[in-house]
Structure formats: structure tokens, C-alpha cells
Computed example of a mutant assay.
Amino acid sequence: MNLRTGYGRFAAAVNSLLIAILCLYCLSLGAHAQTAPKDGPIKLAILGDSLAAGYGVSPAQAMPARLEAALKKAGRNVTVINHGVSGDTTAGGLQRIDWMLADKPDIVMVELGANDALRATDPAVTEKNLDAIIAKLKEAGVTVWLAGMLAPRNYGPEYAQQFDGIYKRLADKYGVPLYAFFLDGVAQDPALNQGDGIHPNPKGVDVIVERILPFVTKNLDDHASSVRRPARP
């Protein structure tokens, strides 16, 4: 055997083996990076209107701030980011998704549609906008939750039926968790609303948080399971 040739073949074989091992190692590092628990709090953004923004109450009394406080009291390491804009519609929410995503949220709760209903917007238009919002968020790799709204009953049963069904249809289409009615337990209760009869007062905000908290905690656990991070940080 030619020593030089034999050694060259042996060296090439060893190099190939080392390269293969290195590739496998790099792949395992990449997989670990994707499944390893994420440091820091979970970021939950609420993309909403005045009901999220906290119209008529102080920033500390707004729903996102009160929800974050309740979650921390329950031992949850969650930051709730207020992306509520008073007067915003589903069209407005769609236009500012990129701005919201700059905060790099893990989860986005979409709380929009009340102003569409107050303006008697065609439910088909509202549904199209919400559909586009959910699709864009999911395309960005964000977990999406949907908070439902009900139409004013003075618009008649046909409008109410068309509008109210939007949220269930979209939740089923995209497989996202749905909280059926954001104002559950608060709507039309004078003791829990401001003088306009529409926006919750601080007591009303606390009722919203109390009612929605089980939905949030359950879906935080589901989210934690999906990304393989501890359910209770």
C-alpha cells in the first residue's frame, strides 16, 4: 500500500466523520434553542379600543394594568402591554399591527369591534378586518386570543345575529381561544359603568378582570405547553 495515499484516505474519512458529528451537534443546538424555556416574563399585548385603553380611568385602573396585577398576585410572570386606542375600529387595529409587534409580544388578545358596532359598520367588513388581523398575527408567529363583542340590540335582530356570530366563526376558522363577551357581567349595569353607560368605571374594570382571569390563566398554560416552557413561571 502506498503510505501517502493510504494516509490521505484515512485523513479524509476522519475529516468527513468529524464534519458529520459537528453538523449533528449544531442541529441539536438549534433544536434546543427552539424548545428551551424563554427567560423573562411572557408578554401579553391587548390590541383593543377604549375598553382596553382605559377611557375615563387612570392608567393604573385600565384593564391591562389590573389584569397584570391579578396575574402577578396569582404567581404568574406576565407583562400585559396596553395597545388600546380609544375610538379604534377593526380597520384601525389592522393598520397598527406592525407597530404593536415591535414590542415582540408572545400573545396578542384581540379586543376590537365595539366601535364598528356602534357605527353600524357592515358586519361583513368587521369580519374581514378581524380575519386579516388574526391571519397577520399568526403569520408573525404570535399566539392569538380573541375577545368577543355583542352588537347593540337597538339595531335589530338581523344585524345583531350577523355581528355576534363573527367571533365564533373566526375562532373556529383559526383555532384560537375565544372569550365570548369582553363586557360580561358589566354591560348595562349602571353601578359598573361611567356616566355614558358604555365605558366601565374602576369597579367595572375589576369585574372584567375577575371574569376573564380564568380564561387567561388556562390559555397561558396552554401556551406554555405549546412552547415547552414552565406553566407557572
Rank of each mutant, 00 (worst) to 15 (best):
residue 126 T to C: 13
residue 112 L to Q: 04
residue 126 T to F: 13
residue 188 Q to F: 10
residue 185 G to L: 05
residue 155 Y to R: 15
residue 183 L to V: 03
residue 148 G to A: 06
residue 122 D to N: 15
residue 145 W to S: 13
residue 121 T to D: 07
residue 154 N to Y: 13
residue 217 T to E: 15
residue 194 Q to L: 15
residue 104 K to C: 08
residue 101 L to E: 08
residue 140 A to W: 00
residue 160 A to K: 07
residue 138 K to Y: 03
residue 126 T to D: 11
residue 139 E to M: 06
residue 105 P to N: 01
residue 218 K to G: 10
residue 121 T to E: 02
residue 145 W to N: 08
residue 149 M to G: 04
residue 201 N to H: 05
residue 192 L to N: 02
residue 158 E to N: 07
residue 209 V to S: 12
residue 195 G to L: 09
residue 174 Y to I: 05
residue 150 L to D: 01
residue 143 T to N: 08
residue 161 Q to S: 15
residue 192 L to G: 05
residue 155 Y to A: 13
residue 178 L to D: 12
residue 148 G to H: 05
residue 140 A to P: 00
residue 160 A to R: 11
residue 122 D to V: 05
residue 127 E to F: 00
residue 223 H to E: 06
residue 150 L to S: 05
residue 154 N to E: 04
residue 162 Q to Y: 04
residue 222 D to I: 07
residue 191 A to N: 13
residue 201 N to V: 02
residue 104 K to S: 15
residue 190 P to S: 10
residue 120 A to F: 11
residue 184 D to Y: 13
residue 116 D to S: 08
residue 221 D to M: 01
residue 187 A to M: 14
residue 139 E to F: 06
residue 137 L to S: 04
residue 147 A to P: 07
residue 150 L to P: 01
residue 220 L to D: 06
residue 103 D to T: 07
residue 171 A to G: 05
residue 115 N to F: 12
residue 174 Y to N: 03
residue 158 E to G: 07
residue 212 I to E: 15
residue 163 F to R: 11
residue 177 P to A: 08
residue 185 G to V: 09
residue 171 A to P: 12
residue 165 G to K: 09
residue 104 K to A: 14
residue 216 V to W: 08
residue 115 N to L: 09
residue 217 T to V: 07
residue 213 L to R: 03
residue 147 A to Q: 10
residue 171 A to K: 03
residue 217 T to N: 04
residue 197 G to S: 11
residue 181 F to H: 10
residue 128 K to F: 02
residue 183 L to P: 11
residue 104 K to W: 01
residue 125 V to M: 06
residue 111 E to A: 14
residue 197 G to H: 09
residue 222 D to N: 14
residue 132 A to D: 07
residue 190 P to Q: 09
residue 215 F to Q: 11
residue 113 G to E: 08
residue 186 V to L: 13
residue 197 G to I: 01
residue 190 P to G: 12
residue 204 G to A: 05
residue 219 N to L: 06
residue 119 R to P: 01
residue 152 P to I: 09
residue 163 F to D: 12
residue 140 A to R: 03
residue 106 D to K: 01
residue 132 A to C: 00
residue 205 V to A: 11
residue 211 R to Y: 05
residue 218 K to P: 00
